[in-house]
């Protein structure tokens, strides 16, 4: 019998909706591009200015340091939450409640003004010890730890209980089982939200501008307060934030794909 040609379903309304969205997006882009109030030359000039690049470097440094502090402390807090001691559990729970229940901005302001609370720490003058940079790292790191604690705890709980049973039945201690069996499996569940946390952290670093943390936004604001080209400098900052978050998202995607392929159970 002759093969009959198959005609796919025609969707006229979908085509119309797509056309409308495309036209609207193009119109928006054109209106921004053609806007006489935007000094495009200024944007181009400042995009790679040394002060901006220094701020960008600081943003990345802050994010990485806060991530390291946050993730290490987060794992510790998660283990405390899962421990047999009610004191450790409550302490970790209280920490998470406090740090997640208050705005990061407020926490940054507190650490930035720490000298008002303690003007000396041991033998050190607080202002010299807790510089805006140090205050930024502490604030971001401690805040990150509270969120990572929940992510890690969720990951550990997601691992099938039978894995713990089998590990213990073989004579492994809880610590050995956690290290060799549970945490490696938890990593697969932890990685996507951890990646999202890092991307949020990259953006959250912009908040340290309120204590003159020296990040990308601080640099952009310093320049715009001098030359009054606020929108242009905000566009400069926007492009850089987009660049680093997009690259990080790509890296996260690649890492997740790589982890899924290493035979961790899903063929």
């Amino acid at each position: 019998m002759e093969a009959v040609e198959v005609v796919p379903l025609r969707r006229p309304w979908l085509w119309l909706a797509s056309a409308i969205v495309a036209v609207a997006a193009a119109a928006l882009a054109v209106s921004i591009w053609r806007n006489p109030h935007i000094d495009h030359a200024a944007v181009a000039r400042f995009q790679f200015a040394p002060a901006i690049l220094a701020g960008l470097r600081m943003t990345l440094v802050l994010a990485l340091l806060a991530a390291v502090v946050g993730w290490c402390l987060g794992v510790l807090l998660a283990v405390m939450r899962l421990s047999a001691s009610p004191v450790l559990r409550i302490a970790a729970g209280a920490y998470t409640w406090l740090l997640r229940g208050t705005p990061l901005l407020v926490q940054i302001l507190i650490w930035g003004n720490f000298a008002l609370l303690f003007d000396r720490i041991g033998p050190f003058d607080t202002n010299k010890l807790i510089t805006p940079f140090v205050a930024s790292v502490i604030a971001l790191g401690l805040n990150e730890a509270a969120y990572m604690a929940e992510v890690v705890r969720g990951g550990v709980l997601a691992v099938d209980r039978g894995q713990a049973d089998a590990s213990l039945a073989l004579g492994m201690s809880k610590a050995l089982a956690m290290r060799r069996i549970i945490l490696p499996q938890a990593l697969r569940v932890i990685l996507p939200p951890a990646g999202n946390q890092f991307i949020s952290l990259l953006k959250a670093t912009s908040l340290v501008s309120v204590i003159a943390g020296g990040d990308l936004l601080t640099a952009a604001e310093n320049i715009s307060s001098a030359n009054l080209k606020t929108i242009e400098l905000m566009l400069v900052a926007t492009f850089w934030y987009l660049a680093i978050t997009t690259l990080t998202s790509l890296g996260q995607y690649v890492l997740e794909r790589r982890l899924a392929r290493s035979g961790t159970g899903i063929a």
């Binding site: 039978g162 894995q163 490696p184 499996q185 159970g265």
Partner: peptide
């Protein structure tokens, strides 16, 4: 003491 479980519980990684 060795133990074998209903759902095997092999380490998938």
């Amino acid at each position: 003491i060795g133990m074998v479980f209903q759902r095997f519980n092999l380490f998938p990684h």
